[in-house]
């Protein structure tokens, strides 16, 4: 098990005990003793205590480490000088590869420490490639450590409805997918979009400042159980019931298992589902549009 750029001990406290590290399985009757855990990160977080091996790399060098690992698993030569710039040695990487190949079933859990640093989407792509290529030697998979409750659900729903998991552009009437172009941070920082509907998120507190400025410039609509930072810069805010606490429905766990919610409270506010449906029905009453060949939208 390799955790890369994540700190489950503090961010996903039950990940070790309930899902990954200490649980006993059919082929691993001794649980923790039968597993090897490696942590790759730029600093020694509390998760390092749980790891058998901790590899500290220099910030922003994830892609270089992944690329070197991909070369080493195929016995291709790597430049020790380039590897040294990552904060690790070729021997450390060779040792890691040896352990990876010795595993009967390996997994790389990658966190935002990997996907939000220099290289961004290419780092995630690199880890996925590494896991795919490891399958020439043993069973190996990769799984992102999901931060929010139902972010996996949004991937699933968009996958079966549009064919792509996130960052889907429907402006031409058919789905197009290109992370870096149609992903939110890039759209907002470039100032591409001219309205925004924010559902259960607070980009006003987390986005880069130029993105927040753009949200304040355009008509922004927020659906949230609380009046958030984004609500304060929005034109419209609608309070909704809190998912899982007072709103029922289905959510996906990070390993893509759908689970039903059992809300304990009854909210005085409508659910997100109800409000989005009402907005959709209000839009559907207006004349439909189709994109025309000159790029302008035409009402038909």
């Amino acid at each position: 098990m390799i955790y890369w750029g994540g700190n489950p001990a503090e961010c996903h406290p039950r990940h070790f005990t309930k899902y990954s590290l200490t649980q006993k399985g059919k082929f691993i009757p001794n649980g923790r003793k039968d597993r090897t855990m490696v942590l790759v990160d730029i600093r020694e977080t509390p998760s390092a205590k749980a790891a058998d091996l901790f590899l500290q790399i220099r910030p922003g060098k994830d892609f270089e480490v992944i690329t070197a690992l991909r070369a080493i698993i195929k016995d291709q030569p790597v430049n020790p000088k380039s590897v040294a710039e990552t904060g690790l040695t070729v021997e450390q990487l060779q040792d890691l590869v040896k352990q990876m190949k010795a595993a009967r079933f390996g997994i790389i859990f990658f966190g935002m420490g990997l996907s939000m640093t220099r290289g961004k989407h290419m780092n995630s792509a690199g880890v996925l490639m590494l896991a795919a290529e490891m399958n020439a030697f043993t069973k190996f998979v990769a799984m992102p450590m999901r931060g929010h409750g139902n972010v996996t659900g949004s991937d699933m729903v968009m996958r079966w409805s549009t064919g792509y998991p996130f960052g889907v552009n429907l402006c031409r009437g058919y789905p197009r997918f290109n992370p870096g172009e149609y992903s939110t941070v890039d759209l907002l920082v470039r100032g591409d979009n001219d309205a925004a509907l924010i559902l259960g998120a607070d980009p006003g507190a987390t986005m880069p400042q130029p993105g927040i400025d753009h949200l304040a410039r355009i008509p922004t609509i927020v659906l949230d159980p609380k009046v958030t930072h984004t609500s304060r810069i929005s034109r419209v805010h609608i309070t909704t019931a809190a998912t899982g606490v007072s709103a029922p429905g289905t959510v996906y766990r990070m390993d893509e298992i759908p689970l039903p919610l059992r809300p304990a409270l009854k909210s005085p506010y409508p659910t997100d589902e109800e409000v989005i449906r009402r907005i959709r029905e209000a839009v559907a009453k207006k004349p439909a549009w189709r994109p025309s060949p000159n790029g302008q939208m035409a009402i038909v």
Partner: peptide, 20 residues
Amino acid sequence: ANMPLVYGLSNITCEAQREA
């Protein structure tokens, strides 16, 4: 809007995501 953005989706149910 010509190019509205629908963003978030991570703290709402799959049923709400489908509507979105």
